[in-house]
Design a protein around this nucleic acid. Structure first.
Lengths: 209, 209
DNA sequence: GGAAGATGAATGAACGTTCATTCATTGTCA
DNA sequence: TGACAATGAATGAACGTTCATTCATCTTCC
């Protein structure tokens, strides 16, 4: 009864990226050393170079994985029955992890990296555009958005929604480490609901619904 | 006829910090070397150590200066005659510089640094809290805010405003380098006005005012 | 002369990357 | 089956480079 192959090539890459995420969040892209990552992953330094050409390739692969994850979140948001629930999914996606502030820190670092690495900038812009198009579409089809929205076009609303989402992410990295995932989630949801009320509540409805 | 003393001790520090801002925005806190900074400032490496204990002290001093600048922006916003103008000042403050994306990149980097450096995190949190208190106060006193605002409390509105502001800053670092300060400013103002309309326009007023 | 300002070569630690080597696993053939 | 060969995943010491920091030295100005 031989133990099944524990690590496929794909799993190794994933294992390295998981470790890299933790190290990058803890120290930043450029302060995290390859030794840090190998130690976190419980493997040797050299092995990383069997799966990634160099450190930049690790960063790129992380960005690519982030892109896939965002697309999945968008798909889930698309399937939600109401617009409010879609927004809640978008705003709390990063809180599903067991360490939300790790994800937040990574994303803020990703934007910082994008500001000087054109390749990363293109990728982030692309992710953002796709996600915003999706949400614009979501709003355009939503019955809630017809009556309210103060004459703003769907894409203008989407732009505001994503600005708030990014802004809350930045806020999240300032929270003390001790704050739990559940607490972060609650905060995010509060803001999401306030934003939703502002954007989509029919003006005739009572304001304190 | 001796040239008058060009650099006082205070000016030297400012000169070094100006150079550091450019280098930090261009390469990031930890990728920018002391040689980069000294070259940008047009002085020798060693001289930096006459005015700053070490590299971390340069970063801290930059964060401190950022704090002072934010306070000044807040003062200007406070003196504006209407709430809309206050918001416009807050949202476009970084566009007053001749290189807005430099400021944006620096601030995003600052938040990234805050996510792992508790000292920087405390400072940024403090700045943010002061600024938010100021804006909360501004809203509470503003006649525009009384009738509208969908039943949201002033501090909840302030939280949303700052989230959008940070989110737009992150957006700004994705813009291609070629985009001019004026274009950035226009974009920021558009979003500010949309947000303001959403938050404070009386619901009875025509939506497309 | 001497105090303060300024220089940049020197230093040593830390980093990304390489590669000779090890060894568990798999395949081959009697 | 068992002895032997082949494989390639995994290791970590070593290398060359970069970087923050120091300090002996030079300049300026009173």
């Amino acid at each position: 009864m031989p133990q099944p192959q524990i690590e496929s090539s794909q799993d190794r890459r994933t294992q390295i990226l998981d470790a890299a995420l933790i190290c990058f969040a803890k120290r930043g892209f450029h302060q995290a050393s390859m030794h840090d990552i190998s130690a976190e992953a419980g493997i040797s330094v050299g092995l990383i170079y069997r799966y990634f050409e160099n450190k930049d390739a690790v960063i790129s692969a992380m960005a690519d994985r982030h892109k896939k994850e965002i697309h999945e979140v968008l798909e889930r948001a698309r399937r939600a029955p109401t617009l409010l629930e879609s927004l809640e999914i978008l705003f709390t996606a990063h809180c599903c992890e067991d360490a939300p502030q790790v994800v937040s820190a990574f994303v803020v670092d990703l934007y910082a990296e994008a500001s000087r690495n054109p390749h990363v900038a293109d990728l982030v812009r692309d992710v953002l555009q796709t996600a915003m198009d999706g949400v614009t579409d979501l709003i355009a089809r939503s019955p809630e958005a017809e009556s309210a929205a103060h004459g703003l076009k769907p894409h203008e609303l989407a732009e505001l929604i994503f600005a708030v989402s990014r802004g809350m992410l930045m806020r999240d990295v300032l929270q003390p480490q001790e704050m739990t995932a559940a607490e972060r989630r609650t905060r995010q949801l509060e803001v999401t609901r306030r934003l939703w009320r502002l954007l989509f509540k029919k003006e005739s409805e009572p304001a304190y619904a």
